[in-house]
Design a protein around this nucleic acid. Structure first.
Length: 270
DNA sequence: ATGGTAGACACTCTA
């Protein structure tokens, strides 16, 4: 089967329902994983999303903040729900993509890692401490999952840009939350704990600058191009041979009333 | 060193 997965921090689903419609028309993804939906489950715009082409949906939205969702053209089975850092925060949703008869099931994890506030010191900044704690739990979670050749996909706004080429200036961002050594170290440990493969960097060489987020505060996001690659699609080694294509949809930052994040896309032939 | 913008919600918090 062909499988196109998109991950996107949409920064309010209700505000950008038309952009989701456009994305769906233009790229025909089989699965869309959203972060920062900013909508409670009981207010989720199910009808509009269904009309756009996603009859199957899983949501985890608890407030006007955070919130994640998985939208799919294929049937989904809800995976076990769990808390992270003892909070009900809407930062993780888990689905198993129901296979056709001869296909293997695909386990999907959609994460929204805490942004971490401004000060990169867990002693004085509770948000940064929460971010590191959340990532430590992700590492334990990944290490505890059997590495049994299962086909798994982890996507989301991980709020860390790991490589030097994932930020506009490595030197100037070393003390900026999202690119500090302690965060990069945490992200690398999560990756190693379960052998996750970063599919975009399988396709784009690590020397090449690549971003998925540009601040709203820049005068001209494209001209200054001070971006960071915060959004990721990872897969288990079992899925690596099936990877056909991956890209970051940079142009989406130039859409009208855009999110500050752009979609990340990956194609598999399983 | 500072402030710049965007969204939810209803005061200010989060990013």
């Amino acid at each position: 089967m062909n499988l196109r997965i998109i991950s996107w921090n949409i920064n309010s689903l209700r505000k950008r329902i038309d952009l989701l419609d456009y994305l769906s028309e233009a790229y025909t993804p089989d699965v869309v994983c959203l972060q920062e939906t900013k909508v409670k489950d009981d207010q989720f715009p199910h009808k509009a999303v269904e009309r756009i082409g996603f009859p199957h949906r899983l949501t985890n939205g608890v407030s006007g903040y955070n919130g994640v969702a998985i939208l799919s053209r294929r049937p989904l089975e809800q995976g076990p729900v769990r808390d992270w850092c003892d909070r009900q925060d809407g930062r993780h949703v888990h689905a198993v993509l129901q296979p056709d008869d001869h296909d293997t099931p695909v386990e999907l994890h959609n994460f929204y890692v805490p942004a971490g506030g401004d000060e990169p010191d867990p002693e004085v900044n509770e948000k940064f401490a929460h971010k590191l704690r959340f990532m430590s739990e992700m590492e334990l979670w990944g290490a505890a999952m059997p590495q049994d050749g299962a086909v798994r996909v982890l996507v989301g706004d991980l709020n860390v840009a790991p490589l030097e080429s994932d930020v506009w200036s490595h030197r100037q961002l070393l003390k900026v939350v999202s690119h500090t050594p302690v965060e990069v170290d945490h992200l690398n440990r999560i990756q190693r704990a379960h052998g996750w493969i970063d599919v975009v960097r399988e396709v784009v060489p690590p020397e090449e600058k690549l971003y998925s987020w540009w601040s709203y505060r820049a005068r001209d996001w494209s001209d200054s191009d001070r971006g960071r690659r915060l959004d990721h699609i990872w897969v288990t080694p079992a899925l690596r041979p099936a990877l056909k294509h991956a890209e970051i949809l940079r142009d989406a930052r130039g859409w009208s009333t855009p999110s500050d994040h752009v979609p990340v896309l990956a194609d598999f032939e399983i």
